[in-house]
Design a protein around this nucleic acid. Structure first.
Length: 265
DNA sequence: ACCCCGGAAGCTGGTGGTCA
DNA sequence: TGACCACCAGCTTCCGGGGT
């Protein structure tokens, strides 16, 4: 199976079962290869690299490469246009490590979420397309900056159970949709009361505050990087009304959405 | 003692509206 | 489109019970 999503700044590919290509380069794209199942046999600048599931490889533009996988293997490949995601990091002398650890299960879920999101869009939904692109870039940026292994559950303390990890994965995949504590508690297989306590103990925040924080973070990105109206952004992030979004944003950020946008441009 | 759980009360966010 | 308000539903926290 070969699936592909093309967006203005990036491309997402998922390849499952036997596949092989010939050595080639991408002039203006970074490539992140993420084996999610089995082993990926990679050749990078004439050097053979064996990538087990959970070990990603980052290629810079013009790096010569090829790879092959067997019938029981699968990889996710993300190509990002040079210059669209490293501007801030470059100022700090940022250079992503060639190899990075990540969670193959979480990235498989993320990819599925992105594909589902794309299939639900039509060509007129530029804001949603832009938001999806920002989501992918944000995940990628954290992976490349070395925090990829903890990407899905960024604040989890060690020892946190797998049910809670699943809840965090779910929240990160669905935080722009309607989420209830009851639903999350059911995912965690805990009573609602116990779930809130264990969630707060693991993340330092209550489930609702955690979701709101993700939404506000995404709102900041959209305000900075898009020209969408406050109303459009409020609906895109799952807020039921612009006034609700306005009030929560002002409380958490200390400025209205418009003030924030004008202050960061 | 520790963990899991639930009731009750107070708090906060959601809803729906108006006005500039 | 932003600012504000009142009401209500849902969320969080405190406290304590039951089981191991």
């Amino acid at each position: 199976m070969y699936m592909k999503i093309i967006l203005p700044q990036l491309e997402l590919h998922k390849i499952e079962s036997t596949f092989e290509n010939t050595p080639h380069v991408h002039d203006d794209q970074f490539q992140v290869t993420i084996p999610v199942q089995g082993t990926c046999f990679f050749t990078h600048e004439s050097k053979a690299v064996k990538l087990p599931a959970g070990e990603g490889l980052i290629l810079h533009p013009r790096d010569r490469h090829s790879f092959h996988i067997g019938p029981d293997a699968g990889v996710i490949i993300i190509r990002v246009k040079d210059g669209c995601m490293y501007d801030q990091e470059r100022e700090k002398g940022f250079d992503p490590a060639l190899r990075q650890q990540f969670d193959p299960v979480a990235w498989t879920m993320l990819f599925r979420h992105w594909i589902t999101g794309m299939l639900a869009l039509d060509h007129s939904e530029k804001l949603a397309e832009e938001e999806l692109e920002l989501q992918v870039l944000a995940h990628l940026q954290r992976l490349l900056s070395g925090s990829g292994a903890s990407e899905i559950a960024p604040r989890l303390k060690t020892g946190t159970d797998t049910h809670l990890s699943r809840v965090l994965e779910y929240i990160h995949a669905h935080f722009t949709e309607e989420l209830s504590v009851d639903l999350l508690a059911a995912l965690a297989r805990q009573s609602r009361f116990h779930f809130i306590r264990s969630f707060k103990s693991a993340t330092g925040q209550t489930p609702y505050q955690y979701v709101l924080q993700l939404r506000i973070g995404k709102a900041k990105e959209l305000l900075q990087r898009s020209s969408a109206t406050v109303t459009d952004i409020s609906f895109a992030l799952g807020f039921s009304s612009p006034s609700q979004f306005f009030r929560i944003f002002a409380k958490q950020v200390g400025a209205t959405p418009e003030q924030y946008r004008s202050g960061t441009r």
